[in-house]
């Protein structure tokens, strides 16, 4: 019984660390994009390597959580839901890493007239993630609060969609971009950054169902 209690405390700590990593990676994502939009490549590369480190640490945490939940047969009735949640949350951190890698390879040129919209898009996407994490914590401790907390996630995902559409519209209607390939490049990166908010919403939708299942 004592060993299970110790392991339970260990998992709690791992889950909390995992959530903090996601929050931190989202913040780094926002900061890194701002560095890139302002042409500070060295700082952007620093953020990129910090995110890669967090992603790798989160993978080990995810594995530890999964292994302990199964090997010690913990939370049998909610184990599948918790693992599903952890897996989809891991996608969030994966997206931040992938987007940064693509930016560092492709180095898209963000023209000044699109910069504010890209900043708005990245802020909205990151806010969706930041609003998601308290809801995930509530799932573990106060499931009845989850639905209310998720309202903000849906709001910021919608804001991200609006910014994404704005970027696409401007990119394809403006005469400041001459090459079609560059218009497509802008659309591509707007979609990629917006994917962070989409993934946060995907987790939110799962979480809503899990919270209903947990409601007593």
């Amino acid at each position: 019984m004592i060993s299970i209690f110790k392991k339970a405390k260990g998992i709690e700590a791992n889950i909390e660390k995992f959530l903090k990593n996601i929050e931190l990676s989202a913040s780094l994502f926002e900061q890194g994009l701002k560095e890139y939009f302002n042409g500070r490549m060295e700082q952007f590369d620093d953020r990129c390597s910090q995110i890669q480190k967090l992603e790798s640490e989160s993978d080990s945490l995810r594995f530890d959580i999964k292994f302990t939940l199964y090997s010690d047969l913990l939370i049998p009735d909610a184990r599948g839901d918790v693992l599903g949640l952890i897996e989809t949350l891991d996608n969030v951190i994966d997206i931040t890493e992938k987007v940064f890698i693509q930016i560092s390879i492709e180095k898209p040129v963000i023209l000044p007239f699109l910069r504010d919209d890209f900043i708005s898009l990245s802020e909205a996407s990151v806010k969706a993630v930041h609003k998601l994490i308290p809801a995930v914590r509530a799932f573990f401790e106060k499931p009845q609060n989850v639905t209310d907390l998720l309202t903000q996630v849906h709001f910021w995902e919608h804001e991200a969609d609006t910014a994404e559409i704005r970027i696409k519209t401007k990119a394809f209607n403006s005469e400041e971009i001459e090459q079609f390939s560059r218009r497509v490049h802008m659309r591509y990166f707007a979609e990629k950054i917006s994917m962070l908010a989409d993934e946060a919403e995907a987790v939110a939708e799962r979480l809503e169902v899990y919270a209903i299942k947990r409601a007593f």
């Binding site: 339970a8 401790e141 007593f216």
Partner: peptide
């Protein structure tokens, strides 16, 4: 239900307590 709604119990700790 009354107690569960008022006491903050982490799911994992709740599992241990339920056992």
């Amino acid at each position: 239900k009354f107690f569960l709604r008022r006491i903050r119990f982490h799911l994992i700790r709740l599992d241990f307590t339920t056992r």
